Simulated scan of single mutants.
Amino acid sequence: MKRWREVLGIPINLEPKHFPCDDAAASRLVIAAKLQGKNAHRLSLELGRAVWEREETLADPTTISLAAQRAGLDAAELRAGAPSDAELDGLHEKFTQEALSAGVFGAPSYVLPSGEIFWGQDRLDLLERALKKLVS
Rank of each mutant, 00 (worst) to 15 (best):
Glu98Leu: 15
Gly90Asn: 05
His92Leu: 11
Trp4His: 05
Ala33Cys: 11
Ile31Thr: 09
Gly120Lys: 07
Asp74Gln: 09
Ala26Asp: 09
Lys132Arg: 13
His18Ile: 09
Trp4Tyr: 01
Thr62Ile: 07
Gly106Ser: 14
Pro113Glu: 15
Arg129Ser: 14
Glu128Pro: 00
Leu131Asn: 10
Leu124Ala: 06
Leu66Thr: 15
Ile64Asn: 08
Leu14Ser: 00
Thr96His: 10
Gly120Trp: 10
Gly120Leu: 03
Ala67Cys: 04
Ile12Pro: 08
Leu124His: 04
Asp125Val: 07
Pro108His: 04
Ala75Lys: 05
Lys94Gly: 01
Ile64Lys: 08
Arg70Lys: 15
Gly37Arg: 07
Val30Gln: 11
Leu66Met: 15
Val30Ala: 12
Ile12Cys: 00
Arg70Cys: 08
Trp119Ala: 02
Pro83Gln: 13
Leu45Glu: 12
Ala25Asp: 14
Ala82Cys: 11
Leu47Tyr: 00
Gln36Ile: 00
Gly81Glu: 12
Ala86Cys: 02
Ala107Val: 15
Ser114Ile: 08
Glu56Asn: 09
Gly120Phe: 06
Trp4Met: 12
Ala33Tyr: 09
Val7Asp: 08
Leu35Asn: 13
Ile117Met: 10
Asp23Thr: 14
Ile12Gln: 00
Pro61Val: 05
Gly81Tyr: 13
Asp89His: 06
Leu127Gly: 05
Gly106Ala: 14
Glu56Met: 15
Ser101His: 02
Phe95Trp: 13
Gly103His: 10
Ser65Cys: 11
Leu73Gly: 06
Lys133Gly: 06
Thr96Val: 07
Arg70Phe: 10
Ala33Gly: 13
Glu15Thr: 14
Val111Met: 09
Gly115Leu: 14
Ala76Leu: 03
His18Trp: 15
Glu93Gln: 13
Ser65Gln: 11
Asp122Gly: 01
Leu100Glu: 13
Ala86Trp: 01
Glu116Phe: 00
Leu91Gln: 12
Leu91His: 05
Pro11Asn: 06
Ser27Tyr: 07
Ala50Pro: 03
Leu78Phe: 02
Leu66Val: 15
Glu15Gly: 05
Trp4Gln: 05
Pro16His: 04
Gln121Thr: 02
Gly103Glu: 11
Gly9His: 11
Glu53Cys: 03
Leu100Arg: 14
Gln121Ala: 03
Gly9Gln: 01
Ala76Phe: 04
Ala24Lys: 12
Asn13Trp: 00
Pro11Asp: 15
Val30Ile: 15
Leu131Glu: 12
Glu6Lys: 10
Ser44Gly: 14
Cys21Gln: 04
Leu126Asp: 12
His18Leu: 06
Arg70Leu: 13
Pro108Arg: 03
Glu56Val: 12
Gly103Phe: 09
Asp22His: 12
Ser114Cys: 09
Ser65Lys: 08
Thr57Phe: 03
Thr63Arg: 04
Ser44Trp: 00
